[in-house]
Simulated assay, not measured.
Amino acid sequence: MTHSIIKASNYTALQLIKGYQRYLSPIKGFKCASGHLYGDTTCSAAIKAIVKNQGIVQGFPAIQNQLKRCHSAARQLAANPGQPQSGVFCCVLPIPL
């Protein structure tokens, strides 16, 4: 890929994440499972940081790991109904990772 295509891809990805965080995330009313279970950043914030620091192409393995982490957290929460889960959701749970 040429440098300009990669730069455009990174910019587009960041704009999509920002739009999601600003307009969609507040409406949906839930937090990602990873952020809830581990008490750290949400997937969108983590992926945004990865794209900023590594770019979407080089950061792709780290993005996959973040989504797998969220998927695993959602499974952990589902297996432990005694844990508070109100407003928790994994966007990738139906997708086998």
Rank of each mutant, 00 (worst) to 15 (best):
Y11P: 02
A33G: 08
C32S: 13
L77V: 08
Q76L: 06
L77S: 04
Y23K: 11
Q76A: 11
Q85K: 12
H3W: 00
V51P: 02
L16V: 07
N53C: 08
G39E: 10
K48M: 13
Q54C: 10
H3I: 00
I5V: 05
Q58Y: 12
Q76P: 00
G59I: 06
N65P: 07
I27S: 14
Q64V: 15
R69E: 14
N53A: 11
I6Y: 00
G59S: 09
Q76E: 09
T12K: 01
I27C: 13
K7Y: 01
C43L: 08
C91S: 14
S86L: 06
R75M: 13
K68Q: 15
A79R: 06
P81G: 08
G87W: 01
L16R: 09
R69S: 14
I27V: 15
G35K: 04
L37V: 01
I95A: 10
C43S: 11
H71T: 09
S44N: 08
R22T: 14
K7A: 12
M1G: 01
S34V: 00
C70W: 06
Q83C: 09
I63M: 14
G29Y: 12
C32H: 07
N80S: 12
I17D: 10
V51R: 02
V88F: 02
R75W: 05
Q21T: 03
N80E: 12
A8W: 00
I5F: 01
P84Y: 04
K31C: 08
L16P: 01
S9H: 01
S72K: 11
H3P: 00
R69K: 15
R69V: 05
P81D: 07
Q66M: 15
P96V: 04
Q64I: 15
Q54A: 13
P81A: 11
L97C: 11
C90T: 02
K7Q: 09
N80P: 01
G82Y: 02
Y11N: 14
